[in-house]
Amino acid sequence: MCLILLSWQKLPDQPLIIAANRDEFYSRPTLAADFWPDYPQILAGRDLEYGGSWLGVSRNGRFAAVTNLREVEARGDRSRGDLVKNFLLSNDDTRSHLARLELEKAKYRPFNFIAFDGLELGYSNNMEPSWQLLPPGTHAIGNIPQSSRNEKTMKGERDMNAALTQGAEHQRLLSMLQDPSSSGHHEEAIHRTLSSRFVIAKDLGYGTRSSSIVSLGLDGHWDFWEQIYNTAPQQADFLQPQSLKHFATKPTA
Rank of each mutant, 00 (worst) to 15 (best):
C2R: 04
L3E: 09
L3F: 08
L5E: 09
S7I: 08
Q9P: 03
K10M: 14
I17T: 07
A19Y: 05
A19W: 03
A20N: 03
N21S: 11
R28M: 09
P29H: 06
P40R: 10
Q41Y: 00
I42F: 04
A44E: 10
D47G: 04
L48F: 12
E49C: 01
E49L: 14
Y50D: 15
G51C: 11
L55V: 11
S58V: 05
G61T: 09
F63D: 04
A65P: 07
V72Y: 04
E73D: 08
R75E: 09
V84I: 08
N86T: 10
F87T: 00
D93Q: 06
D93P: 07
T94W: 01
S96K: 12
L101D: 05
E102L: 00
Y108C: 01
F111A: 04
F111M: 04
F113C: 02
G118V: 02
G118M: 05
L121Q: 01
N126M: 02
N126S: 03
S130R: 10
W131T: 05
Q132D: 05
L133V: 11
I141F: 05
P145H: 01
R149P: 00
E151D: 14
M154Q: 15
K155E: 15
K155V: 14
R158Q: 15
N161K: 15
A162F: 10
A163Y: 03
A168W: 10
R172Q: 15
S181A: 15
S182K: 14
H186L: 06
E188A: 14
I190K: 06
T193M: 02
R197C: 13
F198L: 14
V199C: 01
K202P: 04
G207V: 08
R209C: 12
S211G: 02
S211A: 12
S212D: 06
I213K: 02
V214H: 03
S215V: 00
S215R: 15
S215T: 12
G220M: 11
W222A: 04
W222E: 05
D223R: 13
D223K: 11
W225C: 00
W225L: 00
Q227G: 05
Y229P: 05
A236C: 06
P241V: 03
P241S: 02
Q242V: 09
Q242R: 14
L244I: 13
K245E: 01
H246R: 14
T249Y: 07
K250C: 08
K250L: 15
P251V: 12
P251K: 13
